[in-house]
Design a protein around this nucleic acid. Structure first.
Lengths: 339, 339
DNA sequence: TTGGGCTTCGAAAAGCCTTTCGAAAAGCTT
DNA sequence: AAGCTTTTCGAAAGGCTTTTCGAAGCCCAA
């Protein structure tokens, strides 16, 4: 009943002027009190702070950004939002940003370079402090055809231009790591079941396995990595074939977790124990395949979260980012399928 | 050699004033020419447009947002960025926004209400036009404790306050749909392998199955849905138990795809054919489990993409969003495991 | 030649914050 | 008490765009 008090209809956001008026000081003083930097008496400072609290004031970041300073935000353009790759990367990036009280602006280019360019322009219009371009394959990609004031960092898919800054997974080193671990556990007859022969990720992982074996004086069973595709069926049929052809082997390095899952199932179907008879390790550490399953297995985690985090760090650190391709190695998550 | 021309060092973004100067008109005229709305002669318009193109001018959206109008952006706060639920929702939301030439600001609350509140304030400081709160369980959640000028919409996890606007999956209706499909294919002896008895999603799916069966005059095998957990092992062991106890059944409705995968494997291990001997359908349509596998199976797709899209539509449509819980039903993706 | 109606353009304000710099007040010294 | 320093505060500009509204120019008719 009666006239509605002002606090029932805050149809507008309070501004710094409102806070200043409530505290009985000038706008300039209010600003300094809130930013807690300049010369302002302790008593007036608390008065301003209380007024701001009372009005639940929060500064308009648009105005602040307009001042020409930083906007405390970066744009992320991912080429696929379905992928298991971009998501952990984005998560790492978001986490690093939030820790810095900054915000992520997200766009999805759906693998379309035109759309990517368009989104980049849109994000630049919002004056982001930097751009993160997240790919979904390790193949080098053409650089963004855009003159930008702010830094650009490529993640997962590196730029073809060596003057750009890229962060990628070190597939070869990670595969080496996994293979060395198997060798360290006493395995000698190692098979690599790789992805498609056209895929750079598959090639690097296969090569890493081969190198680690060679370094230990071993040759892979079959003489070379067996390349196929990324699917479960490939792992399943490969194990059957190996056994049918009476190959002796005591370890499987799989190009990804789906292949590993297929191999695991085939080993079970043929009555072989893991890791008793055969050790097995997958790639990607995709929990729905290697952890939340009937028979969990070890896998290489590519540390995509860390990749996103590192990329953001580089992006928001003042000064031009270091040019070149930065490779981050993965680590092994053991679930008892090795020894 | 010589003085560096201006186009080699565009260390600053061109402003509308630059465009106006280049075109020899005033700032106001340039603005009107670019927004293509007010009275401006055709010849001057093209002159301005050319100047803008030349300088590759893009308007500062911060300044535009400062005018008090809309910023053409919404904030999305998700409670988990790992989940398979929030990702498709976000993808749908982003797609709807991009189609509107708008941008998504992303935050991750990690399931922490304090962090959620903090992120909401931060996004509001950036003057987003709306807030999307994406949960990762269907359990109703406490509303955001924040007075906002812009609309808020809850997705997946509805708000406990009926005055709020929420968009959720209709698990019960979707399960009914799946069960009716099985019955329509001639199945009569139906088993429901559900998730944990404490999970609302699991309960709704079980209830939907039961209702559809009852509507056809059937009782579920076992008398009631069998509740367990969300894991593969539960599906695997349940099928073994059913067969060991000599239950007759010709259809399995599984609470999710992991359960379905376990059941599928068990059926194979026991020499039963799908769908010859037993029809099977999963839930969630998670392709790594039901599509990219050795033996694909049918699954209920909850249309999370559409959920995100619908929520955004409601959010950015002028006028207050319709209060209440909006339920969206899923659809069946058939992969030949039904008939 | 003058006045009226159109079309086209520009000056200026609004929107909100930060920063600079000058002014005022208060305290101190001699 | 006068002059100086130190402390505290405020006026104003800067940053970029949109919008309003008045001014100027033009054509044509009277």
């Amino acid at each position: 009943m009666g006239a509605q008090p002002s606090d029932t209809a805050p149809h507008k956001n309070p501004t710094l002027a409102d806070v200043a008026a409530a505290a009985g000081v000038s706008i300039a003083t209010a600003s300094k009190a809130l930013s807690n930097r300049y010369d302002v008496a302790e008593t007036t400072k608390v008065r301003v702070l209380e007024a701001a609290e009372e009005l639940s004031f929060s500064p308009n970041l648009l105005a602040r950004g307009l001042l020409g300073g930083r906007t405390q935000s970066v744009g992320i353009i991912t080429s696929d939002l379905e992928g298991r790759f971009s998501l952990p990367i984005m998560m790492g990036a978001e986490g690093a940003m939030a820790a810095d009280r900054s915000t992520v602006l997200l766009s999805n280019s759906r693998g379309n370079p035109e759309l990517e360019l368009q989104h980049a322009k849109a994000l630049l219009s919002r004056r982001v402090d930097g751009l993160l371009l997240v790919g979904d394959t390790p193949e080098p990609r053409p650089p963004l055809r855009l003159q930008t004031v702010v830094p650009v960092v490529y993640v997962y898919a590196p730029s073809q231009d060596p003057a750009d800054t890229s962060f990628v997974c070190d597939n070869a080193a990670s595969a080496k790591l996994a293979t060395e671990r198997l060798i360290g556990a006493g395995r000698r007859a190692i098979v690599h079941l790789g992805g498609p022969a056209q895929s750079l990720a598959a090639i690097d992982r296969a090569e890493g396995t081969r190198l680690a074996a060679a370094a230990a004086g071993l040759e892979l069973i079959g003489g070379a990595p067996a390349m196929g595709d990324w699917h479960e069926t490939w792992g399943w049929s490969s194990v059957h074939r190996l056994l049918d052809e009476a190959n002796e082997f005591d370890a499987l390095v799989c190009g990804n977790d789906q292949i590993a899952r297929g191999a695991m199932d085939a080993l079970e179907a043929r009555g072989l124990r893991v890791p008793g008879d055969v050790a097995l390790i997958g790639f990607d550490n995709w929990s729905v395949l290697c952890a939340d399953v009937r028979r969990p297995f070890s896998s290489v985690d590519l540390n995509l979260d860390g990749l996103g985090r590192a990329a953001i760090q580089t992006l928001i650190t003042p000064g031009a980012p270091v040019a070149g391709i930065h490779k981050l190695s993965g680590l092994i998550v053991d679930r008892g399928s090795i020894e």
